[in-house]
Design a protein around this nucleic acid. Structure first.
Lengths: 344, 344
DNA sequence: TTCATAGGGACAACATAAGTCCCACATATA
DNA sequence: TATATGTGGGACTTATGTTGTCCCTATGAA
């Protein structure tokens, strides 16, 4: 397959662009359906007329349906879309990159989604979908799923397929994170539980409490119960953030932020801040998952994409060899670049 | 691979035309090199400008070289060309057709070259090249190769790669055939022997001798020697002709021709005429390979292409299960058509 | 109703591809 | 040596296809 693609690249390279164009149009329709021609052309940053021509083509091929409410991807279109993704994957040499990253980060598996999250909003959704379908495959009866907040994890939940497992429990990995309710861990836990027909427990604790206040709250029965469930989680889903962004979003005061960054913090994940060497230099004062638990958890899935997250992804060392990373082409290639610069 | 081609055909069907165009241009350059732009455009029945555009592309891709003497295919171009052929093979579904024909004709192997001999003169060369490289693979030390005349076999000889085997002998399968020296069995035998650094023997016997004259000549020492070699040949290369064409070319008089055709002769091979059921109804009065030998010969390769040869190919039954047929897409598809019509 | 969105028609502006002819040069032939 | 025929490349006009733009009507939501 790879051989053949190289051959095609040599003899009909124009086709690659065309393939890419049609793929991204189809993908965008899929993730925004029903959608109109103008909205699409804005999203894709293509001329309206161009979109129209291609859309007409896709219609003739039976990949999309067009009616007055907008454009929708047909069953066949979905099928094609899925297979196209694999192909683009190969064309961009992402299989190689995945193996490369796996070795470099010393983790079990890396999945790279074609495209760049910063430039193409469907990439994030795609990452969510891929992560979700992976998690679905490892989910068992009686699984306990812990997850964090953030837009990446939110997309995983959003794109989770409905499946039936018995006695599944979903819990937030750690106490309240962020201000937007939509992407808070608690909200996501509830949403995912709802999709799975599973139970969920909450952990309503404000950020940045004093040590004493935390101690007191941890003895509340409801909270104790949730914490116990968290500690036996067999699946952890988390996003990776940049230390600078996350520290501000978590409501740390300016001095603390400055202090943190001056200590070299570059990454944040489930409340822990890492420096370039993957050392923990600060822990958000809240409760939930302990780092020692993270290390031995059976299934741990990180979702993070975008070129600017590359450094943070490298820095976040869970020391868990079973970790799986779902990222995008932008981040993946940047990681490789950083890796190669540091070697030379 | 097949799956992928179908996918591409769905999402970028324009690819096929472009691929086909570039392939045929590259192929034509290869078989006519060094060749000029104008000559090419005439051969391909494409506008001069179109050829120019594509040729420029091929040059930029490093597949051909252009200098004042004409265009030449580079090493890389040859490599690409070879792999392209496989791809076109798959695209046109020729692998299926090959298997289909193998079963229908009850022979060991069928190789179908993309294109139609009648429309594209390079197809014949291609058939020759493929047949030659197959024969090369089965040739051993001490092999005795018998071959007939005709343009198809001539192309096999023409495209034979130079290899070294010891003590190989090349002989014409039967006495003088046809009037054009270039494609006579004797000439081809000498040419092939020369390419292989092998020995050859000749069989200079006019066509259409009387029975008595034949008997006499067969006792000539030189001829006896050649005949003996023929009878122990382990490789037979032969073309298949239409009975109507061949009977005239062999110089039969009009009455005999009429007689032959009215008896239902449709095919001719190594001097034997077959009717639709594959029964021998006439034998050219000359000497050489006997039909009983043909049946048990170890390697027997037929080369014949073009839509109008389809019926002749079907009719030529050697009853040798080891037979290999090299043909073209035009003939192959026509054979399938005839086969399916006869069933219904 | 009113408004925003949808698809589709139409046409000018533009870009690209194609047809055509000419030129300088190389090679083979007389 | 002179000539005829091939070669690639330049340059131009013409044809074709692509793109940008605006307008129209229909449909669904507020």
């Amino acid at each position: 397959m790879k051989d053949m693609l190289m051959l095609q690249q040599k003899i009909i390279p124009e086709m690659l662009e065309l393939l890419d164009k049609r793929y991204s149009i189809l993908k965008n329709i899929y993730y925004n359906q029903p959608v109109g021609r103008r909205a699409l052309s804005q999203e894709l940053k293509l001329g309206e007329r161009v979109v129209r021509t291609e859309v007409n083509f896709l219609k003739n091929q039976g990949l999309i349906e067009i009616n007055s409410i907008g454009m929708m991807v047909t069953k066949e279109g979905e099928n094609i879309l899925e297979r196209l993704e694999e192909m683009i994957h190969e064309i961009n040499g992402l299989s190689n990159i995945e193996e490369n990253l796996q070795r470099f980060l010393q983790i079990e598996k890396v999945m790279v989604i074609p495209g760049d999250l910063d430039k193409d909003s469907t990439v994030l959704k795609e990452m969510g979908r891929v992560a979700a379908s992976y998690i679905k495959s490892i989910m068992r009866n009686d699984s306990v799923i812990a997850l964090t907040g953030g837009t990446s994890v939110a997309q995983v939940v959003e794109n989770f397929p409905r499946i039936s497992r018995e006695n599944v429990l979903v819990v937030p990995a750690r106490g309240g994170i962020g201000r937007e309710v939509e992407t808070q861990a608690s909200t996501l836990a509830a949403k995912l539980a709802n999709k799975l027909g599973a139970n969920h427990k909450l952990l309503h604790v404000p950020d940045n409490l004093s040590h004493e206040a935390l101690e007191t709250m941890m003895h509340e029965p409801g909270i104790m119960d949730t914490l116990k469930s968290i500690s036996i989680a067999d699946i952890l889903i988390f996003g990776i953030g940049r230390a600078d962004e996350m520290s501000r979003r978590r409501g740390l005061n300016d001095d603390d932020v400055k202090n943190l960054l001056s200590q070299g913090a570059v990454a944040e994940a489930f409340g822990y801040y890492f420096n370039r060497n993957g050392e923990i230099i600060f822990i958000t004062p809240t409760m939930g998952l302990k780092f020692d638990d993270v290390k031995y958890i059976k299934n741990i899935i990180a979702i993070a994409g975008g070129k600017n997250k590359a450094e943070a992804i490298i820095a976040t060392k869970t020391h868990n060899p079973h970790m799986v990373l779902v990222t995008d082409e932008g981040a993946a290639k940047e990681i490789i670049r950083i890796k190669e610069n540091s070697v030379s």
